[in-house]
């Protein structure tokens, strides 16, 4: 795979770091090189959360993305801030259940995913991040659904098997729903 950078952003509590960790872990399981860089310290105080994932089959020089190919935004502030960073021709995937307004950019592709709405259909709004991640896998082809499901295993202790199962279901739901819409 050619070097591809992804930024995931939203606000604290939306499970942004979990998305990043699961994605990076899954990419590793798929056999690619990967780096994951969270925003840290004072930058994340005050509610915003974001992380950068770099994927490649070659050594990755910098874990930082100045112009990522893909941006996933889960909240309006994240949308307003990060749309400007996206590489020309890049793809912005946004949580349309929460984000209103249109992008000012004409050189990018915007894909709305009603992650919040779909999570509610599954019965739990907290699953929005995994729904989005499943949709992301289908939309970008950067990562396999199987590896994502496996990656979640390392995030939940054995006593939280039920929650793990729920999150894995959300991944599949996001992936399959987007797939259906495409057809």
């Amino acid at each position: 795979m050619k070097l591809t950078k992804v930024v995931i952003s939203g606000f604290g509590g939306q499970g942004i770091m979990m998305m990043g960790y699961a994605l990076a872990n899954a990419v590793m399981k798929d056999g690619h090189q990967v780096t994951l860089l969270p925003a840290y310290g004072a930058e994340v105080r005050g509610g915003s959360a974001n992380c950068t994932i770099a994927i490649s089959d070659d050594e990755i020089a910098s874990p930082v993305a100045s112009a990522p190919e893909f941006i996933v935004v889960m909240s309006t502030p994240a949308f307003l801030r990060f749309q400007n960073y996206l590489k020309s021709g890049g793809t912005l995937i946004l949580n349309s259940s929460l984000i209103e307004g249109e992008t000012i950019r004409e050189d990018i592709k915007v894909i709305p995913v009603p992650a919040g709405k779909w999570a509610l259909e599954l019965g739990d709004l907290r699953m929005a991040n995994c729904v989005m991640l499943g949709a992301f896998a289908r939309l970008t082809g950067l990562v396999t659904l199987k590896s994502l499901e496996e990656a979640l295993v390392s995030l939940f202790p054995a006593r939280k098997a039920k929650l793990l199962e729920l999150n894995q279901r959300a991944l599949r739901f996001g992936y399959q729903t987007i797939e259906k819409e495409e057809k």
């Binding site: 960790y21 990076a24 590793m28 990967v34 780096t35 994951l36 860089l37 969270p38 840290y40 874990p63």
Partner: peptide, 10 residues
């Protein structure tokens, strides 16, 4: 370095 401590890699 801060960056190396914060970033994750396989």
């Amino acid at each position: 370095e801060g960056l190396l401590g914060q970033m994750s890699e396989p």
